[in-house]
């Protein structure tokens, strides 16, 4: 919590440039300021009302469907499933790709950066409304959970200053506003995301609200958490 307060104070008032574009090659990517809680609150308050029907059309015509699946359930493992995630999370993610703030390098983000360049904030809100309406299929019954992983999820680990995952992502991994849902998420994508945070390739979280908890997680814990959330039913 100290970390958050300090960073919040340092970056207070910084603004996010939405016009900046980023490219994986050649040009130097424009420098985009990281999020502050205040800036996110303002952005969330100004988020247009999304129209799921328009979002559905855009999902098809802007090629989202190709990687994220017909109903937002990803058919392959590099892309996340978006079905049933929170509108705020989808909206912010699209903003971050468009600004280049979310750029994991090595081409991992290049298609998303390109795909979001033509999008208006309204387009992003429409897509967010569409994905939020989709339903992620209930996974097959979960195998027994390692007690250590269960404790990490529910109680955290005070010795490493790791708060419980569930405190932000929800008891059933259902997400909460800008904090994404994790239940049913593609395990491979989960692992990749955690490593990107841990290794500093991803820094579009607000006040390092996610990355600070990844530094002390072991690879084995990340793998186990990925399996846990992939097989967790969002609605028990």
């Amino acid at each position: 919590m100290n970390k958050i307060a300090l960073l919040g104070a340092l970056t207070l008032g910084a603004t996010l440039s939405l016009s900046a574009t980023a490219s994986e090659h050649g040009h130097a990517a424009a420098k985009v300021e990281p999020w502050t809680l205040q800036h996110w609150d303002e952005t969330a308050a100004a988020m247009p009302k999304g129209d799921a029907m328009r979002g559905s059309e855009l999902h098809k015509n802007s090629m989202c469907m190709t990687c994220h699946g017909e109903n937002g359930v990803a058919p392959s493992r590099n892309a996340p499933s978006l079905a049933g995630n929170t509108p705020e999370f989808i909206y912010k993610t699209l903003l971050d790709y468009r600004s280049g703030l979310r750029n994991e390098g090595d081409g991992k983000s290049s298609v998303m950066i390109a795909a979001t360049q033509p999008m208006s904030n309204q387009h992003m809100a429409d897509l967010a409304a569409f994905y939020a309406q989709q339903v992620i299929p209930a996974p097959a019954a979960m195998a027994s959970v390692d007690p250590q992983i269960d404790r990490l999820v529910r109680k955290g680990d005070a010795s490493r200053m790791i708060t419980p995952c569930a405190s932000c992502h929800g008891a059933h991994g259902e997400g909460n506003e800008v904090t994404p849902a994790l239940a049913g998420q593609t395990a491979h994508y989960f692992v990749r995301t955690m490593h990107a945070y841990k290794n500093g390739h991803r820094n579009n979280d607000i006040n390092e609200g996610m990355s600070q908890f990844t530094h002390d997680l072991t690879d084995a814990e990340i793998d186990a958490l990925a399996q846990y959330y992939a097989s967790l039913n969002r609605k028990p």
Binding site: S62, S110, V111, A114, A115, P118
Partner: peptide, 18 residues
Amino acid sequence: DNPYTNRIRAEVAKNWQR
């Protein structure tokens, strides 16, 4: 005229090269 298509095609080109 789809503004997404031309851009993503170009990114696919770069992705392919790598």
